[in-house]
Design a protein around this nucleic acid. Structure first.
Length: 259
DNA sequence: ATGGTAGTAAAACTA
């Protein structure tokens, strides 16, 4: 039996959030952290800051937008960025660690439901289903984590009635995520906190006092195949991590397993 | 209230 702790975090600039991320890694000591929205070109990624602290990093970014990174205690095996056709390398990272196949993604947000980017988002999620079907079976140990930009259920967002036309809660995107999960993925946070409302991973900067007013969204997820779900021992959202000096609009989601 | 704030990067775009 081997302990395995994995986490996901939308940093909204890895350079601005560097002290917060380093402190969090030091405190929690996960095996693997997936980061989205690093917002930095590879030449400017703060690689040495992580390596000096004893972490291994793999990243793929671009100027201003997107960017994903994997931060690991053990050296990372080969990390593949993007889909099989090479598209979206700054939104998707894949690797294998401790026998677990890991996907880390920053799903396109979609802007508005009448925007063409929303259709791109739906097709993007189809692409994840295709990727899963191509490379794995539901009997494998597979973990998909990241900012998926979908609140799956009404309990995963404040004021669900008021957000029915929002790209992160619209019926089409929720059905699309359900379709991907119907391949054989379980929401590991919900497995440990069934039907509990008010657990959020994201709060809009533009709200006056979103954390206090409870104006949050659960759009960051760790989804796993059934054999991995059976080995999961807990899942939690680290709201305390938002006590940082310059917190991201998202916070850390953590899951633990006994492999 | 079609606003609000944060980040990048240098005006406007994204979330």
């Amino acid at each position: 039996m081997s302990h395995f702790q994995v986490a996901t975090f939308n940093a909204n600039s890895i350079r601005v959030r560097l002290p917060q991320v380093l402190a969090w890694l030091e405190r929690v000591q996960p095996d693997l952290l997936g980061v989205q929205e690093t917002k930095v070109q590879d030449k400017d990624f703060p690689r040495e800051a992580f390596e000096d602290a004893g972490w291994h990093v793999a990243f793929r970014g671009q100027k201003s937008y997107n960017g994903v990174a994997l931060i690991s205690r053990e050296p990372l095996d080969h990390v593949h960025f993007g889909f099989d056709d090479g598209s979206h390398p700054t939104r998707l990272a894949r690797t294998e660690i401790k026998g677990v196949h890991v996907l880390c993604s920053y799903v396109p947000q979609g802007k508005t439901i009448d925007h063409e980017d929303y259709q791109l988002k739906l097709r993007w999620l189809d692409g994840i289903r295709d990727l899963l079907e191509t490379h794995f079976t539901p009997q494998d140990l597979v973990l998909w984590m990241g900012d998926l930009n979908v609140a799956p259920e009404p309990i995963d967002i404040y004021d669900p009635k008021g957000h029915e036309d929002h790209v992160d809660f619209h019926v089409d995107v929720r059905q699309k995520l359900a379709y991907v999960c119907s391949w054989g993925l379980v929401d590991v946070f919900r497995r440990h906190h069934p039907k509990e409302p008010g657990h959020y991973t994201y709060w809009d900067y533009r709200a006056k006092n979103p954390l206090v007013e409870g104006k949050g969204w659960r759009v960051d997820h760790i989804l796993v195949t059934e054999p991995l779900a059976e080995r999961s021992t807990g899942a939690w959202i680290d709201v305390d991590a938002r006590m940082a000096e310059r917190p991201s609009d998202h916070t850390f989601l953590v899951a633990t397993f006994e492999l």
